[in-house]
Nucleic acid binder design. Sequence first.
RNA 1: GGAUGGGUGGGUGAGUGGCUGAAACCACCGGUUUGCUAAACCGACGUACGGGGAAACUUGUACCGCGGGUUCGAAUCCCGCCCCAUCCGCCA
Length: 426
Amino acid sequence: MLQLKVIREEKTRILQGLRKRNWEGAQLKIINEILALDDQRRLNQKELDDSLAEANRLSKQIGPLMGQGKSAEAEPLKQQVAQLKEQSKQLEERQRSIETEQQELLYAVPNCPHKSVPKGKTPDDNAVYRPWPSPMPVLHEGAVPHWDLGKKYNLFDFELGVKLTGAGFPVYRGQGAKLQRALIQFFLEENIKAGYEEIMPPLLVNEDSARGTGQLPDKEAQMYACERDNFYLIPTAEVPVTNLWRGDILAEKDLPIKATAYTACFRREAGAWGAHVRGLNRLHQFDKVEIVQVEHPDNSYKAHQQMIAHVARIMKKLELPYRILLLCGGDMGFASAKTYDFEVWSAAQERWLEVSSVSNFESFQTNRMQLRFKDSNGKIQLAHTLNGSSLALPRIVAALLENHQTPEGIRIPKALWKYTGFKMIS
RNA sequence: GGAUGGGUGGGUGAGUGGCUGAAACCACCGGUUUGCUAAACCGACGUACGGGGAAACUUGUACCGCGGGUUCGAAUCCCGCCCCAUCCGCCA
């Protein structure tokens, strides 16, 4: 969530940013409501503190009096304290209700887009930040989509997944299974080479963690929940990995923290099914390697660019056509200040598929999870967090199969050979 | 699932209901001393939200797992919850 201090001090900038997210009159009023509540909160706190201070002062006099046996003199003091206490209780209740209301409003406000984020309402308004520079690949006669290739070479099986679990839970097998493992290994190794520490986190997290990265309270419907134990299956490794530092106050020299993790990801995606979800395009369970950075606010945008360059390098090694989009205000995630999407070309479906979303959240997540650092002046400030996929497997597999298919079989890019152990799927 | 013991500052760990925001030690930071390093010594050393101040800083309140209660006054007493450790059972 946005920092109160920032809303107070940079209201104009925040309002401008929210307009970029297509917020209008009524919604924008929330900002004023938050600020009005803040004035109330501060006023009320002063009153409360004064009341408590007076009660403390009087209480301190009572002890000695009782010790000296002057209970008659203590009696009126006791009554005064009792009165103050009653008053404090009311003020405290009021304070609590103000804070709750303010908190709820703050939760409803998305991150303020960076000034470089373009205006726009839908995915069509996203800017192509880096187009694919070469001509699109031309497939041979009789080329087919990945779901047919999967069947033909026995790489994955959706019917079996339905038998075991339900739709959206594919079973990978044979070279298909090994390809998954090879990609995971490849991505992790690339990330480690780039200075990321490998993390293998739990796949179930508690409520605090889900709240820390912003999955709760709003996106409850997206996560699978184990109600009995109050755990959630992670929708992305971002959740457990970022929460590793929840509540910490880091030293400035600890920054940046760079972490990578492979995990299975679980998404309910309720109601999102329909067109364009065939095959591996959209699943309830999928594999993903994630990169996360905790950065100094001064460096987070530089880090953002480095992450993009890093993901681009991996895409290149996979020999797949891709482009990078700069998302418009209307298409950005709730918590993000700036997001680049990587899209891979699916040659048989003839459309772009999102395979990575690299975002700078600035202090939106860290404010919620109180992830801070002590700067060189000894001041404590919120760190910035960034994350991105490097990469999500299913659509990469789809593109890989489709783009690299030949009449003789599917060509495996050279970078993967040492992980797959085979150069062709046939 | 059963039994027992625990949750105090970055860590270890004291704490008879008022003098405890909290001893001591370690770590960290600043300094002194010393060819260098080490050691020794001295000092500072929590967080949040308010008030005052341009700032350094100062001041109020809250916080000893969380939430309630008793009391003029709670880290300390009472109740509920959560979490952790160990042992037993089950188990890859």
